[in-house]
């Protein structure tokens, strides 16, 4: 073989999906990273619980049963009962549905808003950028918690839809600014200019060229808004601003507090919903850290070096690479 056509030698592809399952490349990267692997497991577990909740909750979470009131965890009531006799286990597993749904929906809505407006502002520049920036600044200045407190106190209907809307509207601005920043960097890349020169319309460039290169940042935005919404919602309910007919972790905590559970030495109404919250939020945070590491190669190397140092400390006999 003497002469080679310029094309026959191709550079080797970097990350090939090793599993035979048809999972997208990014998901596989996340699964490889130890932090996000744990995080995905935790959140996955919660999602699973939420999905099977109706099957495993044996009793009515809002049911009255004074004979069974204030009981510590037992085989009959895995997580114990409230002062009304409601089964806390059912409350927690069914409450997972509301919390996860609310977090995901608020996250999705806020992210869609932030991404669309942020990228559009970055790419269009000029007056569009100014208007969107102004809007972003207005929403940024609004203090989230006090606003939510005020809204929650005044709203007649505090159903989930309203909550989602309110959370999304207060949280999108923060992410919009960040996504705009990243889009600004991408907009000056040659391939965006090449698309413009080829005749692409603005919307196709925003959604077809820029956004696909921001997936990791957008995913991070989603996860962030998700767990912030979770915490804010639980917090509001704990303060008593939630709808008392709801079944959710925050409400369980609220009732526990109003019924002076701690004073009575009853730990179960606090601990179990608390653990559920912690698992979910921690899981989401770990996923966030994983996304960070995966998308920032420099972080990846630092982590690798640190891990390697740790390993060589623990196993000094192993030759350093």
């Amino acid at each position: 073989m003497s002469q080679l056509q310029p094309a026959l030698e191709l550079a080797p592809p970097p990350v090939v999906s090793k599993s035979r399952l048809p999972i997208p490349g990014w998901l596989e990267l996340l699964l490889r990273n130890p932090k996000s692997r744990v995080g995905l497991a935790m959140v996955g577990f919660m999602i699973f619980v939420a999905v099977v909740a109706p099957l495993i909750s044996v009793s009515d979470p809002t049911g009255f049963d004074l004979y069974a009131a204030r009981q510590a965890p037992s085989w009959h009531h895995l997580f114990g009962t409230t002062d009304q006799g409601s089964d806390i286990f059912s409350q927690v597993v069914l409450g997972a549905r509301r919390s996860l749904l609310l977090g995901a929906a608020a996250g999705a809505l806020a992210t869609v808003l932030a991404a669309t407006l942020g990228i559009l502002a970055a790419y269009s520049g000029g007056i569009v950028d100014e208007v969107i920036n102004f809007l972003t600044n207005v929403f940024l200045v609004i203090p989230v918690i006090p606003l939510l407190v005020v809204i929650s106190s005044y709203l007649k209907s505090r159903n989930m839809g309203t909550m989602i809307l309110v959370l999304a509207l207060t949280l999108w601005a923060f992410e919009a600014r960040i996504l705009r920043g990243q889009a600004l960097q991408l907009k000056n890349r040659d391939f965006v200019m090449a698309a413009k020169v080829a005749g692409e319309s603005t919307w196709r460039i925003v959604f077809g060229e820029i956004m696909p290169n921001m997936i990791s940042r957008i995913a991070a935005a989603f996860v962030l808004v998700f767990y912030v919404s979770l915490l804010v919602d639980a917090g509001l309910e704990f303060l008593g601003l939630g709808d008392s007919t709801h079944v959710s972790w925050g409400m369980t905590l609220y009732w526990a507090q109003t019924n002076s559970a701690v004073l009575q030495g009853e730990w179960w109404p606090f601990v179990f919903p608390g653990i559920a919250l912690v698992i979910t939020v921690l899981g989401l945070t770990l996923i966030l850290a994983g996304i960070d590491e995966v998308s920032n190669p420099r972080l990846r190397d630092e982590v690798r070096v640190r891990r390697h140092l740790l390993r060589s400390l623990v196993f000094p006999s192993r030759r350093a690479a």
Binding site: Q3, L4, Q5, P6, L8, E9, A11, P12
Partner: peptide, 10 residues
Amino acid sequence: IPGSPPDLAA
């Protein structure tokens, strides 16, 4: 020169 430099890993 046709072709491109080799991958040093292989």
